[in-house]
Design a protein around this nucleic acid. Sequence first.
DNA 1: CAACTATATAACTAATCGGTAATTTAATGT
DNA 2: ACATTAAATTACCGATTAGTTATATAGTTG
Lengths: 110, 110
Amino acid sequence: MPKLNDQTLEHVAQRFKVLGEPMRLRLLACLQKGEYCVQDLVELTGAGQANVSKHLSLLISHGILGRRKEGLHVYYFIADESVYNLCDLVCESIANKAEGVQRLFSDARA
Amino acid sequence: MPKLNDQTLEHVAQRFKVLGEPMRLRLLACLQKGEYCVQDLVELTGAGQANVSKHLSLLISHGILGRRKEGLHVYYFIADESVYNLCDLVCESIANKAEGVQRLFSDARA
DNA sequence: CAACTATATAACTAATCGGTAATTTAATGT
DNA sequence: ACATTAAATTACCGATTAGTTATATAGTTG
């Protein structure tokens, strides 16, 4: 953890909070495959249109996504690839934890 | 982002949500220097005792912290070091963004 | 311009969450 | 057993937030 005065700490917390929402992660997971417009994402996620729009706006306002207008459609894409590194790290950590639990079980059996 | 079925996605979101709170990050920042008991952390953060206890309990329940009892005191320590890697990544990303903004300003001036 | 489609926004509701005050539990020493 | 200290827990309040419905905005086509 590099220097964290109260302000940067607040910013870091904000970033985490933005990612701490299943629907937003779902959107990011979709957009990992390429850019999509809102209705694509509505279909892919099964969420409501207003809901998707709101989450996308939030991700935009935090610099995680970018947007590109094309006719009636608005295409969203990843602007900050680092979010995937974050998810990778978390997944690893979770996997390790699960492994630890599994080991506990096998140890108990032995 | 490795495989993310709905369940793992939910877990990842949970992890992010736990980290998406300034006070909890502040506690983690303190504990980076070593283990501390609750009252130490109360003094270091300036938060209320109940508040600190609650945040610590949450971090424990998510496997991020560990605890060790010694007499009247309970010492907390980091159980999942990966949280610091996460914070590092976020800080980098934020720094890059700030740099971009700065460049925009200097470009505008030029 | 009118009808249509895609997206954004506003207003609202229910649920979640952080902080606090008060109480309880647990360990220690007299 | 009693008093003292540390930590956890409970109950509560105010604020935030995700989702939905309805409406507004913007771009397209006839």
